[in-house]
Design a protein around this nucleic acid. Sequence first.
RNA 1: UGCCCGGUCGUCUAAUGGCAGGACAGCGGCCUUUGAAGCCGUACGUGGAGGUUCGAAUCCUCCCCGGGCAACCA
Length: 769
Amino acid sequence: MTSSDSGSLAKRESRNFIQQIIDSDRVSGRVSGEIITRFPPEPNGYPHIGHAKAICLNFSLADEYQGRCNLRFDDTNPETEDMEYVRAMKLDINWLGFDWGVHEYYASDYFEQLYDLAIRLIKTDKAYVDSQTGEDIRANRGTVTEAGTNSPFRNRSVEENLSLFAGMRAGDFPNGAHVLRAKIDMASPNMLMRDPVVYRIKHASHYRRGNEWPIYPLYDFAHPLSDAIEGITHSLCTLEFDVHRPLYDWLVDALFPNPRPHQYESARLNLDYTVTSKRKLLQLVKENHVDGWDDPRMPTISGMRRRGYTPESLRRFCEMIGVAKADNRVDMAMLEFAVRDDLNALAPRVMCVIEPLRVVLTNVPAGSTENLEASYWPHDIPKEGTRLVPLTREILIEKSDFMEEPSKKFHRLSPGAEVRLRYGYIIRCNEVIKNEAGEITELHCSLDRDTKSGATPSRRVKGTIHWVSATEGVPVEVRLYDRLFRVANPDDVEEGQTFVSHLNPDSMTVFQAIIEPSAASKDTQDRYQFERQGFFYLDSKELENGKRVWNRTITLRDTWEKDNQPVPQPVRIKEPAPSPPIAVRDPLEGLDTASFDRAKQLDEQYGIGLEDAALLAVRPHIAGFFEEASKTAPSTAVANWLINELRPLLTEEGIRVLPFSAAEFAKLVELHASDTLSSRQAKEVLIEMIATGESSGSIVDRLGLKQISDESQLLSMVQEVLEAHPDRVEAYKGGKIGLIGFFMGQVMAKSSGSANPSTVKSLLERELA
RNA sequence: UGCCCGGUCGUCUAAUGGCAGGACAGCGGCCUUUGAAGCCGUACGUGGAGGUUCGAAUCCUCCCCGGGCAACCA
């Protein structure tokens, strides 16, 4: 699918964090079978560029690992969903070039299974029927800073819950009478875990299940369990769902512990000058700011298709922007590049004059027509094909290609100046004709017969312009599009305004243009480059009415225009790094009295500094561990190793129950302090000690670790490395001193990490001097 | 203000203790019968302050900044 040229593998392919997770899952054996992803839209709106990113991500990943990607409609809310959106979604995914095969699923098909799972939850006392009102539930949930309070119904018996839930399912109760809640923890710092509602009563007709179900599961219940039912291995979603992950895991642990899906979150796409919230897109459609979901200015997939973007360009764009966890706002230029790049090799060239100016070629006889052969493709595109372009006495050129008083770098027509007609001859402007109002109405030019296109160039002119015969050209409507919003981030609004106030009133302009005859008939291409104007695509909607209207997909890159009317680029000021008043912080600030005293004592007794002392003091057993180890090893080194090396290797649990004795730890520190082990080796040993509980001495023996400090031995390694990389030595001597790290790395690798780095470094510096 | 997640060229994204790399945008040049495309070159970055280390974007501490979370939506 996506072209991955195997030849470039040498250049170390970069992997995004999801790929890295999958890679390591396969190595570790967490996933032994197929990689199964899923794309899970709710059918309540038209898919947009943000969906395209998720579609490409999920399907490409499945492709890459030869697994599969399910299409699942998360249709658990009957009020907003519709078959129309299901159809749109499927169409757009296919159009993008992806295929889910037989794996088309609906959460609404799982209603029976999900209901049974809810019953299992009730039976294990992990869910209960709550009969509080919605307002009470909300009020009792607490706030972000205060814990919630338990529902008075939280302790209903399993039997009562079962019978109430059965009643809910049977339709015995009105909307809102009861809900089913997971019994988790009303005091959880994560609001989602405060007994989330998992089923609600909703007497509503579902677009697929009709009135079969009076109760519907909520996303937080349906989603993880649907993933589990389908055997999804990697469930990808956007960042805002990260707080849902504990709940996801809680439910899966309770009902599908193994094998089980895992959720991973990545940043959603934000694109300059567009909005992608469904609500806002819907508003644009409903308030007629645009011509429907597929208006060519819309960021919907259907809009982009109608505008003339290609599936390849969209996929390429998604590849370019990558996948990561940092919030982002992608520059339009990146999308535009992907589109132009694809279209350049795809669209045959023709000529079309959008704002015409009449030119009379005074030395061409009236009524004569010369058919010029013109290639559809520029010289650097290896495609063939030509058409005939009629040249007549009267032609039309673009208004903007003439300037009565040209600026210095204007390479086009002006009084007395010459320019080449594309595929034709060089002409000279002899006379400018104006009306009473002083407006230019036509130009009189003479044509130089000796300069026909393709002939040996007798002379050259700076400019080449497009043109169309005034008598043979065909009128046609073209629509030019600009960005829908005037500002990069339309969501960034002033008090009392909405994103709508940022709409660009000139986002579409319509022209009656004149196109060369070859592109005017019914049976021509639907996509062209109009030379020097941009790429155009036949509007599919108008075509249904038999009308040929050309949408400008995108302009050509135009360095001339940019030079001459600098469009102010979006100014995005980075936070003006508020130079912080260099506050000398008291490391003991905020400590309780006991820790405070302890920290002071540790610092005074061992001289390790207040900051480290405070770090140790807040955990009494760590402080004790430190003191114990300090008996047999230098206390500063013990503190450093404890804080900077040991702690990050341990889990919260591991820190509470340290995996070895203080004395053993001290031995290790001592091995390093005495130069027996390099720091790298000591870290290696530490990791082994945590993993196996083995003593440092036995690990050192087993792995045969010993630091090499012998100069002559190290010198020969250094020399070998330098000899092996003469180019880098050269570069180093040329000033790229960062390469010292490269050489160090080479020597360290050569010695399997046992070289004494200080010695190596001084040797390297000596040899490279 | 509680919890969670983030912060690398203008933008997007790599580098998982060892050369801060790529792409887009920019700038300069070459080429050109599209002021396109192509080719060559160039500038630009690790939020801040300390610490550990021979060596830190990466590990530790504190600070700063951004985002998310209190629907019976997804």
